[in-house]
Design a protein around this nucleic acid. Structure first.
Lengths: 113, 113
DNA sequence: TATATGTTCTACTTTTTAGTAAGAAATATT
DNA sequence: AATATTTCTTACTAAAAAGTAGAACATATA
């Protein structure tokens, strides 16, 4: 009986990229993840997941400009591809459909398509 | 670049158990999975996932009565535990919160808590 | 110049999740 | 009695996801 997470880290990261928009670079993503989750992540885990997501074609990325701040190394900014968007959409639709069929949940949400 | 699924098979199975209620036994679950997903599953994969879910304390199960049908072996009926219910609830809340923050999705759903 | 800060990168290991294979129990039909 | 069907079970393998470690780069501050 192990520690428990029904984890779909990738999906969460993908969503965070969408949420952060222009600010979607690994460190910020990790920060956001922690603030939204109370779960710690290592930056390396974020990087490797971001890579995996890119290999799958769900994210693309490009280097931004280096900023004139202390430590201002150039950031790699991630954006969701069309395929990523679709994957997210599909996953959401599917989940919602299941939730809707489960009596314990069906009451407290509504759609409008 | 691999075949693509942001898969969280366990969560889906857990939900299917909730949806199927008294009918939640492995074969039926597999069937339901296929009908809702268009993805094939092997019954073995379902069994091992159901086991994992039970070890984690999200499901419990008991043998039902054998029915008087051809091949009517006794079925193991699964039910969601309180912990399972909570895990599902948490996962849903978290996802919804993320979706709500992502501009591409934020428009087309509403809550009422 | 040395150090701190913010950040990326890659190769690797571990853990978890998913899937396979083979067998067996219970019942119905032939 | 033999066979077909529906179902469960277990031990195992494979694949995917998550996490670690360590190094490096660019800039600012001391």
């Amino acid at each position: 009986m192990k520690e428990t997470k029904l984890g779909d880290f990738e999906e969460v990261l993908l969503l965070l990229v969408g949420i952060l928009d222009k600010e979607a670079y690994a460190f910020k993503i990790a920060e956001k993840f922690e603030s939204q989750t109370e779960r710690a992540v290592s930056i390396g885990a974020v990087h490797s997941t971001l890579n995996r997501l890119s290999e799958k074609g769900f994210l693309k990325s490009a280097m931004g400009e280096s900023t004139a701040e202390r430590g201002g190394r150039r950031k790699r900014i991630y954006t969701i591809t069309a395929a990523g968007e679709k994957a997210l959409q599909d996953s959401r639709d599917f989940k919602m459909s299941l939730w809707n069929q489960y009596p314990s949940f069906a009451g407290n949400l509504k759609f409008n398509f």
